[in-house]
């Protein structure tokens, strides 16, 4: 990453986690357990991404491959939960 957009990405991730946390209350924890688990997984992945960005020394240390993998994982899990 050339410019230091870590702060903006972290805010996005926090907002994402908050939205997913709220969405968890919509699902029925008995009949929609799979969706519940997938969203919980997305929360944990987002949390790991947040921690990863937070602990990098500078924007150049944020590996794009990790961010891309995390983003794809989030998209996959949200997609699974919503389908």
């Amino acid at each position: 990453m050339k410019t230091d957009s870590r702060g903006a990405i972290m805010v996005l991730l926090v907002v994402f986690m908050a939205v997913v946390s709220a969405a968890l209350w919509v699902f029925d924890p008995v009949s929609q357990q799979a969706q519940f688990g997938e969203l919980l997984g997305a929360e944990l992945v987002a949390f790991s991404m947040l921690t990863y960005i937070y602990t990098r020394d500078g924007p150049q240390d944020v590996k794009e491959v990790w961010m891309l993998s995390g983003g794809l994982a989030l998209a996959f899990l949200i997609g699974l939960a919503l389908l």
Partner: peptide, 26 residues
């Protein structure tokens, strides 16, 4: 906070993988 945050990062990915596997393959 460094080692603790590092552990939290690894733990998040690890637990997420098991949670998602549990949801997909009950």
């Amino acid at each position: 906070p460094d080692v603790l945050l590092y552990m939290l990062m690894i733990s998040g990915v690890f637990v997420a993988a098991v949670v998602v596997a549990s949801a997909l393959f009950p």
